[in-house]
Amino acid sequence: MFSKQIRKSPALLIGILIVVLVATVALVSMVWTPQPPQQQELSRSLLPPFWMPGAQPGFALGTDLNGRDLLSRIMTGARSALFVGITSVFIGGSIGLVLGLLAGYFGGWVESVIMRLVDIQLSLPGVLLAIAILAAIGKGLGNVVLVLGLVSWVQYARVVRGSTLAVRQREFVQGAQAIGAGHWDIIRRHIVPNIMPPLLVVATVNVSSNILAEAALSYLGVGVSLSTVTWGGMLNEGRAVYELAWWNAVWPGLAIVLIVFGINLLGDGLSED
């Protein structure tokens, strides 16, 4: 599936490489980081990156105000970013897939109700509601994933409904209906496999936008609590020392840009025909 597209679009290859790189870093961080990511040591507060005077070996990208190693924290943060991105897409995608299939396959009043819900959700200010809801239910990785998932189902529902409408008209579906296959069988064996490609493109782009959203929420202090290492949370904690130690502002942000850009390149390459 990929090989033909890669030859046409080098950007897709770069995207894949970036995503693989970040995923590898996240996996490695589970067994090894240069330093324990949460270990505080005030005597090592605000050490600069390795090329600057005053740097210490073993702290390649410098340290934060509490003396925690930034490289180790960025590696650990990759885990949170990918976790949030993937699980929230899974939640939103599952809801959207089910509702989109129902709307597209059965039509009628089911479709009207679901599409009305879609219209409503599309007009709601997503970030704003996410902040308000998180302010009320409290922070935490699970809550962020849940809220982002619930906010994003609508994109999947639209794509799934559209593709289902198209696939439903095809001969093999009508054939299956003619030989008396049940609705469930037709949906599972004939419709779902055929609507996967567009669904995957939406999901890919959604992973990156949810990672961005999580970073913003954590930066604002309403997202993931600080006991979990996230890039947005690192930027939040570093706020006081940005002017003193720029590396606290730069590295976590670059990490966010890298993964989001990589996934966007991937999604863009997949969607180009």
Binding site: S208, L212, A215, A216, Y219, L220, G232, L235, Y242, A249, V250, G253, I256, V257, V260, F261, N264
Partner: peptide
């Protein structure tokens, strides 16, 4: 589209 807006602001 990949830049976190708050981070751009910080920079």
């Amino acid at each position: 589209l990949s830049l976190p807006s708050f981070w751009l602001g910080v920079l």
